[in-house]
């Protein structure tokens, strides 16, 4: 007995606990994923069976929903994917540039009325979206931007989303001041410090910003419907809703199928982005 237990019990215990962890993570993951699995399974069922057969395993598999959904609207679905991709890509760039600039200023520099501006910055996201729709529409219609993508991307380039400014402020503030000072002693100006010292160390925050902007813009429905009301300009979320009609006939099968397809790009972006997400100070070798 003694010999068995002496065969490195620490290692053994660690392996067991690791196994348990994996088991827990997988089991929990399945619960989390149930709705998604149901959606995938439904997208593979013949449309009339989706609600008649509630089970997870389809009794009959068909790709009709995919082929039908792809071509059901005025344009093939790739058209809407492309529209969404353009808006989303520009939004990501806009948020990354504008919000990081503003965040550096708020986090590191001193200037008069800073606290007031900061409070105002946070205050702007406290007003519910629905009461500013109309005035905002008026602003964009004054700027003659209705039915263009400007109302969707201009706010991003003008750091309209305080969420990301505040996020980056918090990340920058976790960085020790000594870094800036060292750079300053080396003769670096504010711009160089920002670009060479702060930004590289904020990779996780930038990745977070990029990922969230991508997802939120990709899924943002109402402003895209409102500002791009011509069917030729439709984006993925708007196209997806046209499959549903609460007063008439809905195309649930194609809707599920195209929803799965629409998940592809955001999931892909997340996969690509998470590499940078975990490239923080921990891995940059900063002492």
């Amino acid at each position: 007995m003694a010999t068995v237990s002496s065969r490195n019990p620490v290692l053994y215990r660690r392996r067991v606990s690791r196994g348990a962890k994996h088991l827990m993570l997988i089991g929990f993951g399945l619960v989390m994923l149930y709705p998604l699995l149901w959606m995938i399974s439904s997208s593979l069922k013949p449309e009339e069976l989706i609600f008649r057969e509630p089970g997870l395993l389809p009794s009959k598999i068909t790709f009709d929903n995919y082929t039908e959904g792809w071509t059901a609207l005025a344009h093939p679905f790739s058209y809407y994917l492309w529209n969404s991709a353009v808006i989303t890509a520009l939004s990501v760039v806009g948020n990354l540039v504008a919000c990081s600039l503003a965040a550096y200023s708020f986090a590191r520099l001193n200037f008069p009325l800073k606290k007031l501006w900061f409070a105002l910055m946070l205050g702007t996201i406290m007003l519910p979206f629905h009461v500013v729709i109309v005035p905002q529409y008026i602003v964009f219609s004054q700027l003659d931007m209705i039915n263009t993508i400007w109302p969707l991307i201009l706010p991003k380039f003008l750091a309209h989303d305080s969420f990301f400014i505040f996020l980056m402020v918090q990340f920058i503030r976790t960085l020790p001041r000594e870094l800036d000072e060292a750079a300053s002693i080396d003769g670096a100006g504010y711009w160089r410090t920002f670009f060479r010292v702060i930004l590289p160390l904020c990779t996780p925050a930038l990745a977070t910003t990029a990922i969230f902007t991508f997802i939120w813009t990709w899924n943002d429905f109402f402003s895209q419907l409102l500002y791009l009301n011509n069917p030729d300009n439709f984006t993925v979320p708007v196209a997806l809703r046209t499959f549903l009609d609460s007063s008439g006939e809905s195309s649930w099968g194609p809707m599920f199928a195209m929803s799965i397809i629409a998940l592809g790009p955001i999931f892909g972006f997340f996969l690509a982005g998470q590499k940078y997400l975990i490239r923080g100070m921990a891995t940059t070798g900063l002492k």
Partner: peptide
């Protein structure tokens, strides 16, 4: 410098944010 960094944000604030609020 701080105000320069904030130029986009100020533009956004006065052009599209403050008015509707």
């Amino acid at each position: 410098a701080a105000h320069l960094f904030l130029v986009p944000w100020f533009l956004g604030l006065f052009l599209i944010t403050i008015g509707p609020i």
